[in-house]
């Protein structure tokens, strides 16, 4: 019987360790999951809370159980602040003005879309050239492109502000030194041109932010597409341009989509530059969100609803591109 007890003894302890490990594993797993998801959950249920529930202590956790969810906050998103008291009355409700949310959201969409299309297009072409052609000083150029991403944005904020403020004047000052009258006149005519409060200025800026990323990522993808594809097409009587169009781009398209997600997110989320440069016009949602924080009492329900509306595209993007994202956030350092 000694052998028997020995067997039970030796097989029981590992079993306990095994269960303890399993327990620890699932505990950590669930805790991590909850920690990640909780702020999002909290934002979502806050956006559904009636005004009275938002600031309640103890807070309520479960819609339908703790409180009756309402879409009032979502209606509020599109309306300006209620001035003073008595906001419950119907006639006042009707006279409230439309908020800046629709405008800023439209701006966000326009700026992000144009930025993404141009940045991905330009970056893809540059990446193709880097991948396929022997270019003098290629390593230096690539380092230069990458280094622009290392800059703390605030450092370039000052000169960009100055440059965007009155680029026309800068050019004019230079042109006035040329003693030719029509050139001077041309300088005068563009003197007041400004890139502040304009779609063009902020879009150019966001393209610049996105480009290093696109070039870096797309070069990685092109390096993985065999150059024999183009060579085969070129043997068959196509020019390189046609080969790119017919063979390389269809192959690279999924990669371009994955890359574009990052450009979208950079442009969509940017705050400082648009806050400083586009205070009066062509403003996007992040500064608007910050502005409704206001002073004193914050309407958390409405803020939550605005945030949810603004975050939906990002969450959808994250979901769609989830398999490419890790490679993206590490600039391709992690290969999948």
């Amino acid at each position: 019987m000694t052998t028997n007890t020995q067997i039970t003894r030796t097989s029981n302890l590992p079993k306990i360790i095994h269960y303890a490990k399993e327990f620890l594993f699932w505990f950590v797993l669930i805790a991590t999951f909850l920690f990640s998801i909780f702020p999002l959950y909290w934002m979502f249920i806050t956006s559904l809370k009636p005004r009275t529930d938002v600031e309640m202590t103890p807070p309520t956790f479960m819609p339908f159980v703790d409180y009756q969810p309402t879409l009032d906050n979502y209606v509020d998103v599109f309306l300006k602040d209620r001035a003073g008291a008595g906001f419950a009355e119907a006639d006042q409700e009707a006279t409230r003005k439309i908020s800046e949310f629709p405008t800023t959201l439209t701006n966000s969409v326009i700026i992000t879309t144009v930025t993404t299309i141009l940045a991905v297009l330009m970056g893809t072409l540059a990446a193709y050239a880097f991948s396929r052609f022997q270019i003098k000083g290629e390593a230096d150029m690539r380092f230069f492109i990458l280094s622009t991403r290392m800059l703390p944005p605030v450092v370039v904020l000052i000169p960009v502000f100055l440059m965007f403020n009155q680029p026309g004047e800068l050019v004019n000052n230079a042109l006035q030194n040329i003693p030719i009258s029509f050139i001077q006149a041309f300088g005068e005519s563009i003197k007041d041109f400004s890139l502040r409060n304009s779609y063009i200025g902020i879009t150019l800026l966001y393209i610049t932010f996105g480009l290093p990323f696109v070039v870096w990522m797309m070069k990685g993808f092109f390096d993985e597409i065999p150059k024999e594809y183009e060579e085969a097409a070129m043997m068959d009587g196509y020019s390189r341009l046609e080969a790119i169009w017919k063979i390389v781009l269809p192959e690279a398209f999924p990669a371009m989509l994955a890359t574009s997600v990052f450009v979208v997110i950079t442009a969509w989320n940017e705050f400082v530059f648009v806050l400083l440069l586009n205070r009066d016009n062509a403003t996007t949602v992040p500064p608007f969100l910050f502005s409704i924080l206001g002073y004193g009492q914050v309407e958390w329900g409405r803020t939550a609803a605005t945030s949810v509306l603004f975050l939906i595209p990002i969450i959808v993007f994250t979901f769609l591109a989830r398999n490419h994202l890790l490679r993206g956030v590490t600039f391709g350092a992690v290969r999948r």
Partner: peptide, 29 residues
Amino acid sequence: LLMTVMLIPMMLTPVIVALYWKYMLRTDI
């Protein structure tokens, strides 16, 4: 699913993240 959920926070608008932590970190509510 876990991997996807964990990807979300780093994609979010920093301003909104900050806003929400401000709300959740309030002393009173």
